[in-house]
């Protein structure tokens, strides 16, 4: 502004040249900023298990569909989680892990995914917003309960060291499903396989059973459901067949991952006025 004012008032053509270059700079930087986000695409990969209040990594694969030009200084925001990508070459893609925490069990919307960039000049922030209407089912927050409380609810826990748990020895490495604590992620193995891997540790086991969450200890329904969630996860990880008694509804005891997801889903939807995810 000052230089433009000076140029007009002095009539000095050299200053006009400088002002013209600065105007050109503003025009081209605007175009570059717009072009930087113009041809970005993404895929969102959700883990199978997402728990209320537990930090979960959501994988977003970002594609730059421009043939030659890179996309620069991208900052991706989702559900309060934020991750940066300094440079994505033309025609390339990158996988970004966004740490997200959902609040409240039941069906939730993924919400808005926003890609920001300050490129090329840090004067303005350009944004692209995508409304992701995709529904996700958030399971109750797992809430460990004591042995006595579990026994009072008719649940006994075994003591076999060969079963999965959190404290024992490393038994094997498996894919990250979303429900495991972040401390169990095996970063070296994840880097090698280009996908997240978790450590499975040995734990205790117990005989098959049917859990009635309403009989479990807790100050309210949510705490009881959380306790049931923890029990289902813990027991099924040890290979036990687990069933569920929810009011008048009953799910027969069984084992396996699909069954576990069915049980957790039932807990998530219980007493919620929501439709199926």
């Amino acid at each position: 502004m000052l230089l433009g004012f000076g140029a007009v008032n002095t009539g000095n053509n050299l200053m006009y040249l400088l002002v013209s270059a600065l105007l050109g700079f503003m025009a081209v930087s605007g175009w570059l900023g717009r072009n930087n986000l113009a041809r970005l695409q993404f895929d969102v990969h959700l883990p199978e298990e997402i728990y209320d209040g537990v930090e979960t990594l959501i994988m977003v694969r970002l594609y730059n569909r421009q043939r030659w030009l890179p996309a620069c200084l991208l900052a991706l925001q989702l559900q309060g989680g934020r991750v940066r990508c300094p440079l994505l070459v033309g025609g390339g893609n990158v996988q970004l892990a966004v740490a997200v925490t959902f609040r409240g069990r039941g069906v939730r919307k993924l919400g808005e995914l926003r890609i920001n960039s300050t490129f090329p000049i840090n004067f303005f922030v350009r944004s692209l917003a995508f409304h992701l209407d995709r529904g996700i089912l958030v399971f109750p927050r797992p809430l460990p309960i004591g042995l006595q409380a579990a026994a009072a609810a008719g649940i006994t826990l075994g003591d076999l060291a060969r079963d999965k748990g959190y404290e024992g020895d490393l038994t094997r490495i498996n894919d990250y499903s979303g429900g495991e604590p972040l401390k169990l992620i095996h970063w070296k193995a994840s880097a090698r396989h280009d996908r997240l891997k978790v450590k499975e540790l040995s734990s205790l086991v117990a005989p098959p059973l049917v859990i009635d969450p309403l009989k479990l200890p807790g100050r309210n329904l949510e705490e009881r459901l959380s306790a049931a969630c923890w029990l289902i996860k813990t027991l099924m990880r040890s290979g036990r067949s687990v069933g569920l008694q929810l009011g008048s509804g009953r799910i027969a005891a069984n084992s396996g991952r699909p069954h576990q997801l069915r049980l957790l889903g039932a807990l998530a939807r219980y007493d919620r006025d929501t439709h199926s995810a």
């Binding site: 013209s20 270059a21 105007l23 050109g24 700079f25 025009a27 081209v28 175009w31 570059l32």
Partner: peptide, 12 residues
Amino acid sequence: LPVGSLLLMMVF
């Protein structure tokens, strides 16, 4: 950015 700025400079 500089190349485009210098081209537009001549027009402005």
